[in-house]
Design a protein around this nucleic acid. Structure first.
Lengths: 324, 324
DNA sequence: AGATTCCGGCCGATTTCTGACCTGAATCAG
DNA sequence: CTGATTCAGGTCAGAAATCGGCCGGAATCT
């Protein structure tokens, strides 16, 4: 415990929690002479973590941003917050960083003390409900287990519910986890069927590491995303949402955010394209745009919206009576 | 660079990225003899980071979860992912951990290399739009600056737009950042008005640290949350949403998630209470519950829903024609 | 039985670390 | 301007640690 390495870590930790420390304070905390503290600070600087110092009566040391990320020394609560944040990010709250989030999450979870993992579980409430009623959500625990499997090159056993509802048990060598659209897919080499397969993560249940490690095989084609797209293309697309709106694309985009593509047709009308998963969510979008629209593609959506409209009129009373 | 401390960090880093390493691999990476590696592993164990080793042909070292969080060694992408995750969590995507998230975010941001901060900015798109069109969003940058100010006990200067629209410039000693409802509030001692004030964070603009440190004063009453509630109580509440639904509370709760309180009235009907900020969002909730309802409180909401209903019926064609 | 891999004691040469002491320099208050 | 505060860093000598090499042991899998 009286180690130099541990002292450096403690120093780094102190510098991360509080912005200004005087030399004597730090030396006191670390239980060394001030001279040694100065040397420790120097060491940190040599390691590339710039510790800025200001002199004078209100001076002190302060950790600044450097060229590389320093080791993050977080307390329990912060660790939980980080894990929760990564979990929601992995759920697709922000597009583009899902995969990295899962990787980071796997890393954090693995070294997290059990008691914190329990606290994290307690906050399960919002696994991935970026939007309410938005179809099947992915279980964060499943996701991290799969991610660990990919990273550690460890065979996994898991249950899988096929498209037709048939449940099977798989033994597979996980290769990569790919977020596509609003879904997660696992590419893996099925060790029993001796072939590459893609699995929808929300259909995977109870994945368990077997402890058996494997040497990763080469994925045909090499590109995981292309691989998935390929497989997906061979499956009949259920339906795609297409809606025309009497509003500038700008306004529509502001309402739907990132979850759909919006094209400007001509001044004042725009076309909204979206995967079928946003089905439940369309009432909000259309209501918040508030412009006349026309449902082009899924007739079911038109029926649904009409039903919603009828419900609203029915429930809001016969007619508007404006009070003077 | 040939330091022991740095080597320990690198070892920790290696152990965090990849689950299994053989002793020789690690020794090779760290450029030391295997004997020394064993000693390093021992050192880590002594520091409380349990490195488990398995013997035999497929053996190796592996970092396990211990009693405390080890320093997190993250690469660039992971750092960005963590920051993004914390940002959304701070935005209230998950209730209960907002404050911790901001604290952690401030910590991460501070040590984050500038180039990563830029990448983070590039992902600004989704600052805090947990839900689209959900009222004023909080700027994450403002939030972290304020958090740093509180932590570092540093005076801040910022612009503030009062409720009546008047813009002023403030010089204040930030005391605490409190998430309440779906909003953030800053408690600070206004250095020019010589009194405690609460500021709504979404009305604060361009906060800047002045570099002047202060000794924090005692907040009257002591409890920040109570302090804010107190101040808020003296301000007329705009309106509160109350809706009765012909559906069991269970179902309603599933649709609104955490953003409202739902009470079971009797079997089959429930009451939904929500702050006025969810105004734009009610169409989604009511549509996804799909049950008859009655808007009790804000007449404006009833009008709005009726308008939406009319819009939907108008836009979805005159009447449903079911194809056989 | 043999191969692989972790474990840890022992030793001696080398390096590093530490505290004490001291001179400098920047910064700020009065 | 002066004095107080605080960081900066040189030098020195004794203490402590680090390191690699060597070795016998033990667990694990084929």
């Amino acid at each position: 415990m009286a180690n130099t390495s541990s002292r450096m870590l403690r120093l780094l930790s102190l510098l991360q929690t509080h912005r200004y420390w005087t030399g004597s304070e730090l030396a006191d905390r670390l239980d060394v002479s001030e001279r040694t503290l100065r040397r420790d600070v120097d060491r940190l600087r040599e390691l590339g973590y710039p510790v800025e110092a200001s002199r004078g009566v209100a001076g002190g040391y302060q950790l600044q941003s450097g060229a590389a990320m320093p080791p993050l020394l977080v307390d329990d609560e912060e660790a939980v917050a980080i894990a929760v944040g990564l979990r929601t990010a992995a759920g697709g709250a922000v597009t583009g960083i899902e995969e990295t989030s899962v990787r980071a999450l796997a890393k954090v979870i693995q070294v997290m003390p059990p008691r914190l993992r329990r606290r994290l579980d307690a906050l399960r409430t919002s696994t991935v409900p970026a939007l309410p009623g938005n179809g099947p959500t992915v279980d964060a625990e499943v996701l991290t287990t799969l991610a660990q499997g990919c990273r550690d090159e460890e065979r996994l056993r898991f249950g899988y519910t096929a498209r037709d509802g048939a449940r099977t048990t798989r033994l597979a060598e996980p290769f990569r986890l790919v977020p596509l659209g609003r879904r997660w897919y696992l590419i893996a080499w099925d060790a029993e069927r001796h072939d590459w397969r893609t699995f929808r993560v929300d259909r995977i249940s109870a994945p368990e590491p077997t402890g058996l490690r494997f040497r990763p095989r080469d994925l045909p084609g090499g590109d995981p995303v292309a691989f998935i797209r390929d497989r997906l293309a061979s499956i009949p697309r259920p339906h795609q949402i297409t809606v025309l709106l009497q509003a500038p694309a700008e306004r529509v985009r502001a309402a739907v955010g990132q979850w759909a593509t919006v094209e400007e047709l001509d001044d004042g009308t725009s076309r909204l394209l979206m995967s079928d998963e946003g089905f439940d969510w369309m009432p909000l979008v259309l209501a918040s745009v508030g412009a006349e629209f026309e449902v082009v593609h899924p007739p079911a959506l038109r029926d649904r919206l009409r039903a919603v409209g009828e419900l609203f009129l029915r429930s809001c009373g016969p007619a508007a009576e404006k009070p003077a």
